[in-house]
Design a protein around this nucleic acid. Sequence first.
RNA 1: GCGAAAGUGGCGGAAUUGGCAGACGCGCCAGACUUAGGAUCUGGUCCCGCAAGGGGUGGGGGUUCGAGUCCCCCCUUUCGCACCA
Length: 834
Amino acid sequence: MDANYNPQHIEAKWQKRWAEEKLFEADVQPGKKKYYVLEMLPYPSGDIHMGHVRNYSLGDALARYKWMKGFNVIHPIGWDAFGLPAENAAIKHQRHPSEFTFTYIDRMRGQLQRLGFSYDWRREIASCVPEYYRWNQWMFLKMYERGSAYRKQSRVNWCPVCCTVLANEQVVNGCCWRHEDTPVVERELEQWFLKITAYSDQLLDDMKELVRWPERVLAMQQNWIGKSLGTEVDFALPSLGERIRVFTTRVDTIFGCTAVFVASEHPLVEKLIASAPSPEKLRLEVERIKASAIRTRVEVNFEKQGVDTGFKARNPYNGEEVPVWVANFVLMEYGTGAVMAVPAHDQRDFEFCTVYGLPIRTVIVPANVGTGLKPAPTEAYVEYGKLVNSGPYTGLTSEQAIERMTRDAEAKGFGKGTIQYRLKDWGISRQRYWGTPIPMVYCDACGVVPVPEKELPVVLPSNVKLTGQGQSPLAEAPEFVNTRCPKCGGPARRETDTMDTFVDSSWYFYRYTDPKIDTSPVNQEAVRYWFPVDQYIGGIEHAILHLIYMRFFTKVMRDIGLVSFSEPVARLFTQGMVLKGGSAMSKSKGNVVDPVEMCAKYGADTVRVYMLFAAPPEKDFDWSETGIEGASRFLNRVYRIIERHAATLCNINAWTSTSKEPLELSSEERRLLRKAHQTLRHVTEDMEGRWHYNTDIAMAMELVNELSELEPAIEAGKIRPAVTKSALEYLVLILSLFSPHIADELWEGLGHKEPLLRVPWPEFDRELAAEEELEIPVQVNGKLRGRIRVAVTADEEEIRRRAQAEEKVNQYLNGRQIVKVIVVPQKLVNIVVK
RNA sequence: GCGAAAGUGGCGGAAUUGGCAGACGCGCCAGACUUAGGAUCUGGUCCCGCAAGGGGUGGGGGUUCGAGUCCCCCCUUUCGCACCA
């Protein structure tokens, strides 16, 4: 061993050796228990950043632990390689996106290898190669066959910076998820959609399988799907012979309805205008409302506005005629685009009706209050309660009324119970180049025709001019666009939009199990062995993007017979962000800490230990330069301690409690072994699911502190070499999870040949970990007054006697009456006096 | 507004089941070794107090022999959703 810790040298040495020994390669071994550790795959943006390092350090510690516990561990990585940044860079520099992508992949692969993560590189995938994306196309065709992929004209979100359409999930506060300052604009376009809404209920119901997912993520998904049960009710428009259908979750309040509000884009509005006494005037007013309607969600001070159309609609429950208004807060895309206005029991209606002087009529009162509400309410009463002024339904509770009134509507044919979802189908067309071509053809004779499976992949042409202007770049590549109709053989045109790159990442983790298979997207046998993913680790930012698409894809794959389960990920962990100076690292803020630089300065082991030690993994943490110095000091200290003893210890065997010839242990030896086994116990228990790696490393530091304190005893021979070696070995085994290079180096220095990943994780010894003598605090009336030292085996009676005899305690007992003595064995004594 | 999580020294954090609050690390203070120290080692470091002692986990109340931990009310912060009818 070198006298000094040289991380650069050690890390290069062990990375080379791990690769030569194929240490991280795992293959299907029927009968052997497996463990699938998955981390979210990176986009090849140029360099690994600290968020990746955190994510992958967490996964790596777990993977290494599971290897040592005897699992067959699959731990793959790949590249989410299609996407806009490469295309934009390509436009800027007049190059091809694949150049950037593959250059960056090579660079980032090198960086991941520099960090020493335990990936099985044979399984590496990149989504931008035809061998991968052909299976996107294949699945798209399967979905098309099943009616789960369809084309429709619709109003979509367009990001003017990205020059493409976005899915609903990719719009954040009315802005593009990539450009948080860029409001999306609406465009009317013909688009391809995937019918995720067909799985709304399954996505909700199957959440009960996801017991080991963070509550938060499930709540966000539930929210996003937004299922609500309600009633649709037809209001007749007698003067037009038409009807307006409204959706409500509170049909019990309908006797308080004093108007009907419709969205400005509601199809009936045109008819109302046409039949109005002065159509032009009404049209102008409706246009004004339309212009003020909710367009994006960025508007902070949105003001409710509306216009009375002059028409009346009849409430089918009581025959009352109420005015029809066009209101700017009614959304066409939710429910039926029309609502009944019940100002007494809906806050929005209340605000609107107060402004426009529409009547407010109370029909629900709190169940435990006999009389009505106070006069002149200042806000709507929105709770459930008891019905008043509601004709035959008066006196029912809201729950009873909703049920009975819905039933009556169905019986009389003016309405029905119904379910609404907030979730919309997933629009996947993108008007950009660097993505998977959508395998469809348009033929004048045959219409929309899918590309036959055997003609896949539809390869992305390489010689396309990228200008960043206009629409889909593929439309300007005639040799791509012009093709033959697969059905009639006549001339036809290809679809020129590409797929949302979230399609690529919706099933990539299946591909890892057999990345080269060319007869199917997935090797079903391999999937049967390796799935489900035992542990998925990634950022919370994908809670309702990737993590819902991924669940959806698995259900589709199940329905087309590729997999036999409904949920791909048994357990999900969402790590916190890495900040610098309180905010996320970004180039524009100039606060980026480069992992490569840190590795050059301190070594990968130090970077990883600091990353894991600084905060529990689920919390955000702020990078600090002085903090990493501490981690570096720690590893240096470990190195020095072991290096000092390596020469004397490398040829002897470590003491174990199961040795044939048991040693009589000295008190110093007991003390050292106790600490070692306590540390091992803590880490073992933590690795089984709590993953507060920060406390594991803290425990390892305590063990090192104990070793330092006992150094004189080791020198003096009061701790024999075999015992010292035993403690050092446990330390090294534990460190191998977090700082694997130095651990292997020290392990070798202690005389071992085999890399630590192949060493079985040791069982801790309960006896050795147990304290033999305890210091027990003694309280009088709950205040700490003294301490006693007793043997672990001391019984309650002895502890009680010793506690009362303790001098400092006794002072507080003099002249008082002892009411009660509480003895918690091994923990504490509390003497209650009067 | 709705939903979720969190609030502990100068800082990051620990206390897994109600039982010694502040482990471990950073920073700081003092000392040792040193030509030197941004190396290393030793000691100290929640607050008030010379001390005995007292106070202390966002604030207030409660349950309990005992509360950072459980219950109620309030405040603050972060995140997600938000005229979704």
